[in-house]
Design a binder for these strands. Structure first.
Lengths: 230, 230
DNA sequence: TGATTATTAAATGTTGACAAAATGCAGAGG
DNA sequence: CCTCTGCATTTTGTCAACATTTAATAATCA
């Protein structure tokens, strides 16, 4: 698996795309905080590259939602409000549910034992991580679970949208909130999804996925009200 | 309603964005056909603008899916295969279903009589267009119906994704196919969606919308097999 | 003194030129 | 006659400079 995540197949790394990756990394790592202004010249200097190249990278990031542009006034790291988070959850849930339904449909047309086995193993690993109270392992497995399904759906555009949404959600102030604590509940929801897919039942897959995301939003909002002022 | 569709509020028209609109228009109007190569210099000349500006516009269109880029080899108007169309349908359906569910949810929280009335009027107008066999009126009303719901959902990002998907679908060779003939059936599906929303029932809204899009795909595929070689 | 208007500095928008890569063609060799 | 290699042309990638717009500051006037 490539870490740089080249957008499309035939597209070697170009300078601008490297710069894009670097700026994206800085944003997601929190080195550039939400609301911060991005000065093209400063960035160009910092990256030892021309201003035009930085500009191209910034425009690209703006198109994918990480950056907001104001004409003649520059680029800003987007700030995501709690209201927008709900919208992002809704949208991500829709894409995820569709992916689960499409995967179940595909499994009905052409069996995919490897996929089912991989999903079940992920479930087992998660249960183990839960027993061991291994948070970071759980976190990784959770991401892997969703990625697995998005890949299995064989819908590249959907995956691209999904990935962009996940990145955009990271913009929400305060990291760590996303690690919802009700792991046991979450695992059971995953299990329901896997079963629906194994049974090649798109409708049930969609419903299980929708429930999962909705209860995820619920947990998120709870954590939020606990943590206070927003 | 603005025809140029400015992506975000605070963003006056800039040269590059005008160029972007113009290229987009040429693609959707069929003046630039799928698979065609876009020469930056030629376009710059044709639009009386610098190459850099054209380049910026092209990159932006690539990010939204209308154009495919190959490093050091240029930009091409994307070709959409029949396989991809199914994926696009799936994704568009997911977003649309989510929008219907979100709208129904919102109607449950705060009544929106104007919305309901507008939707019902759209239904009536459609029935009239059907009786009069007025295809172009039906076509417009159909688009308006979907736009209405996407707006009502109050999820700008979802609307942006939806609009991009619709544009991308237009890339499929042969125009006019999208006008599915089973208008009567389609109207009844719309009616079911409106009722679910009027009843503030998100779950039913989502299901009705999903059915609508799925049967739309079915009609599309039929038309396709009729029209022959693909 | 306070507010309004010039002036000035900084940042973005736009352009044309230079460098690197890819494609097409021609000629040599088999 | 076909294939492979090397050169020339074309096209994209990158850069530095110019133009325009915005924001900040200073100066003027009531």
């Amino acid at each position: 698996m490539n870490t740089t995540s080249t957008p499309l197949g035939l597209k070697r790394e170009t300078l601008a795309s490297s710069v894009r990756s670097e700026i994206e990394r800085r944003i997601l790592a929190g080195e550039l905080v939400a609301g911060e202004k991005l000065n093209e010249a400063v960035l160009a200097d910092s990256l030892a590259v021309s201003r035009g190249t930085v500009r191209e990278a910034i425009r690209s990031l703006a198109d994918s939602g990480l950056i907001a542009l104001k004409t003649n006034r520059g680029a800003y790291v987007r700030t995501v409000t709690v209201d927008e988070i709900r919208n992002l959850y809704d949208l991500r849930g829709a894409v995820f549910a569709m992916a689960c339904a499409a995967t179940a449909r595909r499994v009905g047309e052409e069996r995919d034992d490897i996929l089912i086995a991989t999903l079940k193993r992920n479930l087992e690993d998660m249960r183990k991580a839960y027993r061991d109270d291994n948070r970071s392992a759980y976190y990784e497995l959770n991401i892997a679970f969703h990625d697995l399904l998005l890949d299995a759906a064989r819908n590249p555009k959907a995956k691209a949208v999904y990935d962009a949404l996940v990145k955009e959600m990271h913009l929400f102030r305060k990291r760590g909130l996303s690690i919802s604590l009700n792991i046991a509940h979450s695992i059971e929801e995953h299990s329901a999804i896997v079963e629906a897919i194994a049974d090649a039942d798109p409708q049930r897959g969609r419903e299980a996925a929708t429930r999962h995301i909705e209860s995820g939003l619920g947990r998120f909002l709870e954590t939020l009200s606990d943590t206070a002022q927003y």
